[in-house]
């Protein structure tokens, strides 16, 4: 990290101490640490996953941004890169994976499908975007997004991390963070929040 990013403005540092002493904030150090080692969950859903692999591989190599440590276990991952079509059959699993990730955690929706259903949106087994299930931080458009676009999205995520403050992020507030309710596979996908409404509709019918 360069001095200009590290030092808080407004504090004079004598010339002979430059590069040795810094005056900065907790947030900055903390964010710098996190933004430089975002560990993605190794988890590919569809076509976009192939571009994700290419982004991680020889030519594009996103380890240049501190993201190379793909973790197969959600318990060790910081970021879920939803790379592809979210289907109803997969939906409970995705939510479960998200719930298993420790905070701080981020979600990047890669591609048209993860962002909003994409070309398959009308399909009977397709969820119209992963944000119907879990909160998303960055959307990357494209079908599939090129590796450059994905890297751009990941840099956007780093920029987002830079703006956060330990005092405000939701995972450092008092109390437990509620887990996202897991949808149920019924005659169709059942979101738990809809259960009362579906129940009433069924009665009327």
């Amino acid at each position: 990290m360069e001095n200009k990013d590290l030092n808080s403005p407004g504090y004079e540092i004598p010339d002979d101490m430059q590069g040795v002493v810094s005056i900065t904030t907790m947030d900055r150090i903390y964010n710098w640490g996190r933004r430089s080692s975002v560990w993605p969950l190794m988890f590919g859903l569809a076509c976009c996953a192939i571009e994700m692999i290419c982004t991680a591989a020889s030519r594009y190599d996103f380890s240049r941004f501190g993201m190379e440590v793909m973790r197969p276990s959600p318990r060790q991952a910081d970021m879920m890169l939803v790379s592809g079509t979210v289907t109803k059959k997969m939906a409970p699993t995705i939510v479960r994976l998200y719930n298993q990730m420790p905070e701080p955690k981020y979600v990047v929706a890669m591609g048209a499908c993860a962002s909003g259903g994409g070309p398959f949106k009308e399909g009977y087994n397709v969820v119209s975007g992963v944000d119907k299930l879990i909160p998303v931080d960055v959307y990357v458009p494209g079908c599939p997004p090129t590796p450059q676009a994905l890297i751009n999205g990941l840099i956007k995520l780093q920029e987002l991390i830079d703006t956060q403050s330990i005092k405000q992020v939701r995972w450092y507030q008092k109390g437990e963070l509620a887990a996202v309710p897991i949808p149920i596979l019924g005659p169709d996908l059942i979101y738990q929040r809809d259960i009362p409404a579906i129940h009433d509709a069924g009665k009327e019918a």
Partner: peptide, 11 residues
């Protein structure tokens, strides 16, 4: 959402 249920379905 992209869901539909049979008429008398009770979740």
């Amino acid at each position: 959402a992209n869901v539909k249920y049979p008429g008398n379905f009770d979740p």
